[in-house]
């Protein structure tokens, strides 16, 4: 076991613990001995250059991709050692928001949200419909959006509808794949605020792949940077002390600096209000 692996194991507070993860497509190695620990109720952002395997990492955690080697523990259980029933039970404790919502296009938003409820719970239909409406409201959608089809919604609304469906079963972990990509800055900021709010009220653990520096500063507790097929994890401040040129350019480039100033300003205003 690598040294970082042992440190990961000393950290008792872990809702997801990845050690020695290797994934590859053919001869193309994506991750090589990657270790990552996610703590309960934190928001962790996964960043990295295009093609560095951010989405692959997410997909490996939720079991859409089978890793070549390594161990992925979620809620203290190795996900590769689960039988079909346990895996099914595990799936109800996490949820993923795909990039464009991945809503079922033949169903209305409310019906989309009801799909997991019908499949996995015994909630009676009237209550189920109310719950669907509740999730619509929690995701910040107007009530009338419930009866619309995904094709009738804007990109931002589709994302919120996808989030509402992800929240249907009250997951403990929420995976987000580029939640703010394709949203205008105002929509993106609102979506960030929504995630932060939901994390607070629903006690969620959030793992998000993102390219949005503003999101990183605004809502992420820690950031995992994918570099050289592994990750470097820490708060943004601690990552800034890393000598790695990519990390420095990422956070200290013109966009990174702008995001940082914006975040500092927001914090200042927040302090004044408080």
């Amino acid at each position: 076991m690598t040294e970082s692996g042992t440190t990961a194991h000393r950290d008792e507070q872990a809702i997801i613990r990845i050690s020695g993860l290797v994934t590859r497509f053919g001869a193309n190695v994506i991750h090589d001995g990657l270790d990552l620990t996610v703590r309960p109720r934190e928001v962790i952002g996964i960043v990295g250059a295009s093609g560095s395997g951010k989405s692959v990492l997410l997909r490996a955690i939720i079991g859409l991709i089978r890793p070549a080697a390594g161990r992925i523990e979620v809620f203290g259980r190795d996900i590769r050692a689960l039988d079909a029933r346990e895996r099914q039970a595990l799936r109800q404790r996490w949820a993923m928001l795909f990039q464009d919502g991945a809503l079922f296009s033949s169903l209305t938003v409310a019906q989309n949200i009801e799909v997991p409820l019908i499949e996995h719970t015994r909630i009676p239909p009237p209550l189920r419909r109310e719950l669907a409406a509740l999730k619509v409201a929690l995701a910040g959608l107007p009530p009338e959006a419930a009866h619309k089809y995904p094709a009738e919604l804007s990109g931002g609304m589709r994302k919120r509808a996808g989030l509402a469906r992800a929240l249907a079963l009250d997951p403990e972990i929420l995976f987000l794949d580029e939640p703010t990509a394709g949203l205008d800055p105002i929509g993106a900021a609102r979506f960030d605020a929504l995630i932060a709010e939901l994390r607070r009220t629903l006690a969620l653990t959030v793992v998000m792949v993102t390219h949005d520096l503003d999101s990183l500063y605004a809502i992420c507790d820690r950031v995992a940077v994918l570099i050289d097929k592994r990750v470097k994890v820490g708060t943004i401040e601690s990552l800034l002390r890393e000598p790695d040129p990519w990390i420095r350019e990422y956070f200290l480039g013109p966009r990174g600096r702008a995001a940082r100033q914006a975040a500092a300003r927001a914090r200042g205003e927040h302090a004044n209000e408080g």
Binding site: A133, L134, L138, P143, H147
Partner: peptide, 21 residues
Amino acid sequence: AAAASLIETVARSDVPVPPPP
């Protein structure tokens, strides 16, 4: 405290929903 905050969040989202057509 946790339950109260959750109930408050949910109550805030308790908006009347137009019935399906």
